[in-house]
């Protein structure tokens, strides 16, 4: 029924908000999304706060870990 009516939920609302793996989850997600070079470039040219903000804009559910994650990207 839902398929015929084209009813679909937004997976952005699915969040794992604690558990201890969030920092590594976020790093994995950044790498898999291909955004790591962009964040590293912002980190180098504009600093940690700007890089963290860019990360937060894309990964709001893990936002608290962005500041750490962007400095740990290889």
């Amino acid at each position: 029924m839902s398929k015929e009516m084209d009813m679909e939920l937004d997976f952005d609302k699915l969040e794992q908000v604690s558990g201890g793996g969030q920092l590594q989850d976020l790093i994995n997600r950044i790498v898999n999304s291909g955004k790591a070079p962009e964040y590293k470039r912002i980190l180098k040219t504009q600093g940690k706060a700007a890089a963290a903000a860019a990360c937060c804009a894309d990964n709001g559910d893990l936002c608290g870990y962005c500041a750490a994650a962007v400095t740990m990207l290889k």
Binding site: F11, K13, L14, E15, Q16, V17, S18, G19, G20, G21, Q24, D25, N28, R29
Partner: peptide
């Protein structure tokens, strides 16, 4: 969201999720 192959770290003993 994360794909079925996401690894759960051995150190993770709990989760709060929507």
């Amino acid at each position: 969201k994360d794909g079925p192959e996401a690894v759960i770290p051995e150190s993770q003993g709990a989760a709060m999720l929507t």
